[in-house]
């Protein structure tokens, strides 16, 4: 089957989900073509195992993100077949637009794909799953960290095309992150704190542990709202959905809206003083303890690794 992948790139180059999308495509017996928006990272895309060709799509519109312009330019470089994007905010937007332009369905946030084509995906923030089957071509966005990435010994051919489109979303002002911390939706390890941490003065202790293991810091909505933390670190239904390999929840009760944002993490550690806290229902390792004791112990144990 013909699959074209729209690479996910950012200022650091190729996002790891690109290689995961290739793995999803090869599992269907396809040797996909990768399109690199703005011609970024074509060489690293070409080195992913199983890729048949890489096309850098260059054009003026790629200097900042305008989903309409990007998808119109990229769409011109895609023949028929099925199209994959990453289930990131930009990837989802392009998926929807390319599908609408082609009059084919879009299925977002796939966590499983089998030939046929059958796609599984979470709905109701993970409270249920759904299996969708598609006849004909479609656009599918792939949830990051659900497919094991493809290897990196490939040497696909690289070419460049020029396509641009009118930009109607102009960037007026870029606002840097309040802190240089990792983004919760990008990080491999996320350590989140909740109301059980008492008050904002204790937050530094959480950050100290995060820094030690290169983790991003997340938070429950309760502390984002009550302690005035940035909404960008909120995990959950009305915050970010994260799928790190390790999620550590400290003083978080595990309300359904919080679980919605983190229950698909690969491993979950919960630290809570209440043995009946619902967070333990999704934890792989549950520690019933006060954070005042557990966090310093965690710091010590990590530093002696």
């Amino acid at each position: 089957m013909d699959i074209t992948i729209i690479a996910e790139t950012n200022e650091n180059g190729l996002h790891p989900v690109t290689s995961q999308m290739v793995a999803a495509a090869t599992s269907l017996g396809s040797s996909p073509t990768i399109l690199c928006p703005g011609g970024i990272s074509t060489d690293s895309a070409a080195s992913i195992d199983g890729v048949s060709a890489v096309i850098g799509v260059e054009g003026d519109c790629f200097s900042s993100f305008d989903g309409g312009a990007w998808s119109s330019a990229l769409n011109s470089a895609i023949g028929g077949g099925t199209i994959f994007t990453a289930a990131t905010p930009n990837g989802r937007e392009m998926a929807a637009r390319v599908a609408a332009a082609r009059g084919i369905p879009v299925i977002q946030d796939a966590t499983g794909i089998s030939s046929g084509l059958t796609i599984s995906r979470p709905i109701y923030s993970g409270k249920a799953m759904e299996e969708v089957s598609v006849s004909g071509d479609c656009v599918i966005s792939i949830r990051p960290n659900t497919f094991t990435p493809s290897g990196s010994g490939g040497s696909a051919s690289v070419s460049t095309v020029n396509h641009s489109s009118d930009v109607s979303v102009t960037v007026m002002e870029a606002i840097a992150k309040a802190s240089e911390r990792l983004d919760v939706s990008e990080a491999d390890i996320v350590i989140s704190g909740g109301r059980g941490m008492g008050n904002i003065d204790n937050w530094g202790q959480l950050e100290a542990v995060a820094d030690q293991i290169g983790a991003a810091v997340g938070a429950s909505r309760a502390v984002v709202d009550e302690w005035g933390l940035s909404h960008s670190i909120q995990v959950g239904q009305t915050g970010k959905v994260v799928t790190p390999t390790l999620y550590i929840a400290v003083g978080i009760s595990g309300a359904i809206q919080h679980l919605a944002g983190m229950r698909s993490s690969k491993y979950i550690v919960a630290i809570n003083k209440d043995a009946d806290a619902p967070i333990f229902g999704v934890a792989d390792y549950g520690i019933v303890a006060n954070w005042e004791d557990a966090l310093p112990a965690l710091k010590d144990a990590l530093s002696s690794l």
């Binding site: 084919i104 369905p105 249920a128 969708v132 089957s133 390792y285 520690i287 303890a289």
Partner: peptide, 30 residues
């Protein structure tokens, strides 16, 4: 519709995790 929902189902059961008591167990978990 070209995309059809075959089924909706409960999320996969997660097997119960391991429980530990007290901060002394942190190093074991690590």
């Amino acid at each position: 519709s070209a995309a059809i929902i075959n089924s909706q189902s409960p999320p996969p059961e997660k097997s119960p995790g391991q429980m530990f008591d007290g901060a002394d167990s942190v190093s074991e978990v690590v």
